[in-house]
Design a protein around this nucleic acid. Structure first.
Lengths: 339, 339
DNA sequence: GAGCCCAGTGTAAACGATTACATTCGCCAT
DNA sequence: ATGGCGAATGTAATCGTTTACACTGGGCTC
C-alpha cells in the first residue's frame, strides 16, 4: 500500500510538501506541485482516511443507529441522509441496534473515534434519562422521546397527523371511531394515540376505551385487532390504524368478514407507504415525509458537528400531510394528490 | 475526551498495561487489572476506534457501495449485510454512488483507510476492464458483470429465473410471449432477456423482435411498454416484465385499456417485491432472496478479508424461486407459497 | 549593503492506540 | 551463592497523516 512517504521519496521532496500540494494548503512552487501530482497519480496514491482523521480530529463520517425495522421507511430515511451527507462531504456509518437504551449506548460506544456525530432512532419510550455516552459526541434523536438535554431531536408531527385524519373522519359523520394502536412502548404510537384522543374531544366525543385495541404496528396485529373491533357492540363505523401495515391487515380482516369498505366501515392508516395506494380500496392515510426526515436529521447533526455541541438544544418536527383516498369513503374519493 | 493516557495516569500505571488489561493480552496481576477496570469505568473511557485501527491495520468496517436505487430491495440487502457483519463484529460504511465505473472508483478511493473491504454493486454493463482501485483492497461485486480478476462476484440467477417463469407461461399454452426489458446497459436486465430467449428456443419458439420492448425497470416504463405491446398484431397473449415495477405499470395499462388479466393477457414479473401479492390480480413473479444476497456478499467479503485477497476468485450465484399467483392464469392460482 | 519580508521547503511533534523489547524482581534449581 | 526463568510492568517505536516551527535565499527598502 503506497503512503505519502513513498510519494515524497519518489518526488524528491518531504512529506510536508506532498501534503501541502494535495490539500492545497501552504505555498508550493508551481513546478514542485506538478511533479508531485504526477508522481501521486502514477503511484495511485490515495490518502489513508483513518490516519488523516486521527490528526485532524474529524472523520467526515456520521453514525446512523436505526432500530431493527426495515422496509421502505428504512431505505427512504437513509436515502435522505446519504444525499445530504454526501452533499456536505460526509460518509454514513450505519448500524442497526436494538431500540432500547442499552443497545443504543453499546452501539454508540463502538462508534467512538469513527464518527463525528450520531443520528439515533430509539423509539422505545420510558428511558427518559439522558444517554450515557461521551458528552462531546453530537447526537440527534430521531422519532424518539426527547431525552435530557444532551441531544437535539427530530420527530414526526404525529399528533397533527392523527388529528387531521381523525378530524376528517369526524367531518364525514363518524362518531364511533376505533383506533388500532401501535407498539406499546413506542413514542410515535403514543403520540398518534394522543392525537386521536384530542381530535375526538375537540369534536365533543368522549373516547370509548372499548374502541382502542393494539396491533403492535404489524400487519398480523392489525388483522387480529380488526376482528376484535368487529365484535364490539355497537360496532364502530370507522377504524384508524396507527400505521399503514396495520390498516392493510385490517382491510384483509374486513374483507374476509364480508364487511364492505368504506360503505360499512371506513378505514384509515398512517405513513403512506407505497402499498397504500394499491389497496382495494386505496387507503386513506397520512403522509410522512420520510426522505425529508432523514435529510433534516443530518442537517441538524451537521450543525452540531460544525458549531460545537454546546449551544441550545433544538427540538424540531416534520409536518405530515393528509392523503384522502377511497377507504375512508370521502366524496372526495379522487382528491388524492398526484398518485 | 478521555484517552488511554488519562486512564493510565489515574491508575498509576503505563498505557501499555491499560491496553493489556482492556484487550486481555499479556499477563497482568489480578489487582492491577481490577484497578484499571475500575478507573476506566469511572472515567467512561472508550477506546478510540480510529487510532486503534491505524496501528492494527484493521478497521473492522466493510464498505458498501450501492447504486442510486432504493426501496425494499435496498433495505433488505442492507439488512442481510448488517446482520452478517455484526455477527462477525464488523460495521458497515454505506455509500450510494453512481452505477458507472467512475462513480464506483471515486467512492472506493474515499474509503481507503476506512474499510477492510468493499461490496460494490455496479450493474452497468460495458466496463469490463477491472476496476482501478488499490489492489490490496478486497472487493465483492454484486449483481454486476464479472470484471477482470481483482474481485469476487455474486449475482442473481437471472437466467434461471427467467427460464422458469417463461417456461411456466409456455406450459400454460402461450406461444406469443412478449417481454418488457429492463434498463438497457444493466447486467440483470441483459441476463433476464437471455433467459427469456433460451426458454423460448428450448420450446421451439423463435423469439419475435416485435415482442421485445424496453421499460427501463420503472413503473412508468412498464406502463408505456404495455401500451406498445397492445398495438402489435397479432397481439401477444402473455407479457413477461423483467421486474415487478414494470409488471405493475403494465397491469395498470392493461386495466385502463380494458384488457382482462389473466383471461386476455397473462402477466408475470421478476423480484417478488412486497407489492406483488397485493396486485389485482396478484402478480406471478420470481422471488429473489434479497436478504440472503446481502448476507452472502458479506460472507464472501469477510472470507477475502481474513484469508488475504490472493486466492482464487469466487463466482457465486443465488438461486431464485418461481412464485405462481393469479396474474399468469395458472390453474394453480392458489399454489402461492405462504403469502 | 544591512535588515526585512516572504515564498518555498524541511524537521519533527503531534493524534491515540498496540506491541516488540527492555527491565525488574522473586523464586528455584544447581 | 549464582544463574536462569518467567511474571509483571515500563519504554518507546510505530501506524499515515497534518501542521507548527525553523530554516534558506532572493528581492526589497532605506
Amino acid at each position: 500500500m503506497v503512503t505519502i512517504k513513498d510519494v515524497a521519496r519518489e518526488a524528491g521532496v518531504s512529506v510536508a510538501t506532498v501534503s501541502r500540494v494535495l490539500n492545497g494548503s501552504g505555498p508550493v512552487s508551481e513546478l514542485t506541485g506538478q511533479r508531485i501530482r504526477e508522481v501521486a497519480g502514477r503511484l495511485r496514491y490515495v490518502p489513508h482516511g483513518g490516519a488523516r482523521s486521527l490528526i485532524t480530529r474529524k472523520t467526515q463520517t456520521l453514525g446512523v443507529l436505526l432500530p431493527d425495522l426495515y422496509g421502505e421507511f428504512f431505505s427512504e430515511v437513509i436515502r435522505g441522509m446519504d444525499d445530504t451527507a454526501q452533499r456536505h462531504g460526509f460518509h454514513l456509518l450505519i448500524s442497526r441496534a436494538h431500540a432500547d437504551r442499552h443497545g443504543i449506548e453499546t452501539a454508540m460506544r463502538a462508534m467512538r473515534g469513527r464518527v463525528d456525530g450520531v443520528v439515533a432512532m430509539s423509539p422505545d419510550l420510558g428511558a427518559d434519562a439522558p444517554l450515557d455516552v461521551p458528552a462531546a459526541l453530537p447526537v440527534v434523536l430521531l422519532c424518539s422521546a426527547p431525552r435530557g438535554d444532551g441531544a437535539d431531536s427530530l420527530t414526526i408531527d404525529n399528533q397533527g397527523g392523527s388529528k387531521a385524519i381523525v378530524g376528517h373522519l369526524i367531518r364525514l359523520g363518524h362518531t364511533r371511531i376505533a383506533i388500532i394502536k401501535g407498539a406499546s412502548r413506542n413514542y410515535d404510537a403514543a403520540e398518534r394515540m394522543r392525537g386521536y384522543r384530542v381530535a375526538l374531544r375537540a369534536a365533543g366525543i368522549t373516547p370509548d376505551p372499548s374502541l382502542a385495541t393494539e396491533g403492535g404496528f404489524t400487519e398480523a396485529g392489525g388483522y387480529a385487532a380488526a376482528l376484535e373491533l368487529l365484535k364490539v357492540k355497537p360496532r364502530p363505523t370507522a377504524i384508524f390504524a396507527a400505521n399503514d401495515s396495520m390498516a392493510i391487515g385490517a382491510l384483509s380482516a374486513l374483507r374476509e368478514s364480508g364487511v364492505r369498505v368504506p360503505e360499512e366501515m371506513a378505514v384509515a392508516g398512517f405513513d403512506d407507504i407505497p402499498l397504500a395506494r394499491y389497496m382495494d380500496p386505496p387507503l386513506s392515510t397520512v403522509r410522512v415525509p420520510t426522505y425529508e426526515l432523514g435529510a433534516r436529521a443530518v442537517e441538524m447533526l451537521l450543525h452540531c458537528v460544525r458549531n460545537g455541541n454546546d449551544d441550545a438544544r433544538r427540538r424540531e418536527r416534520v409536518s405530515t400531510e393528509l392523503v384522502v383516498r377511497r377507504s375512508c369513503g370521502a366524496g372526495s374519493a379522487r382528491r388524492t394528490p398526484s398518485s
